[in-house]
């Protein structure tokens, strides 16, 4: 099993619903967030292009945060989901330094916090909070090893990219372009 997410940059309008849904679902402390929306503007007027991306932890297959963690608090569970065990985390910041996506933050309680792919929902057969609320249905979640999952089907038909592939992390958030 290999959980992954595909996000359609052509359909995303950047409303930020995914951010609010995540904050509500996961009790993210006020002022922090586990996912966020980036607007990329490239080119020179009048030839400019806009790309909107909802970003979060990439649940990398070769996760530098797990490699650098001195206590084993950052670990990979079934489905390739990268999690942090709060009571093992010493808050040294090594994983925050090692993440090419700046997807982790220091929780006010001391430990490091990040996206969990809403594993507590996924295990019940539901989609992650961000995916389930998206008003344009631009996010797809599922098992890459299952050819009939939403994410496998959309990746089979569309062109996509990942962020910073040169970092060698093999990220599992795919952006449809």
């Amino acid at each position: 099993m290999r959980y992954a997410m595909a996000i359609d940059t052509k359909k995303c309008v950047g409303c930020g619903d995914c951010v609010v849904a995540c904050q509500t679902e996961n009790n993210v402390p006020i002022g922090y967030c586990r996912d966020w929306v980036v607007e990329n503007v490239a080119g020179t007027y009048p030839r400019i292009e806009l790309e909107i991306r909802s970003e979060r932890c990439n649940h990398c297959e070769n996760a530098p945060c797990v490699r650098c963690c001195p206590t084993g608090a950052s670990h990979i569970v079934e489905g390739g989901v990268v999690l942090v065990e709060n009571n093992k985390c010493i808050g040294c910041g090594a994983c925050i330094e090692s993440c090419p996506y700046d997807a982790r933050y220091s929780h006010p309680d001391g430990y490091v916090d990040k996206c969990t792919f809403c594993l507590h929902r996924v295990q019940k057969g539901q989609d992650p909070a961000c995916v389930s609320v998206c008003p344009t249905n631009c996010m797809y979640f599922g098992d890459m090893d299952n050819p009939n999952s939403d994410v496998s089907k959309v990746l089979a038909t569309r062109k996509f990219k990942v962020l910073a592939p040169e970092a060698g992390t093999n990220p599992q958030i795919y952006y449809l372009i």
Binding site: G16, V19, W36, V37, V38, E39, N40, V41
Partner: peptide, 11 residues
Amino acid sequence: MNEELIVSGRM
């Protein structure tokens, strides 16, 4: 120009 802006207000 290649500008990246976090529009959801991540701080």
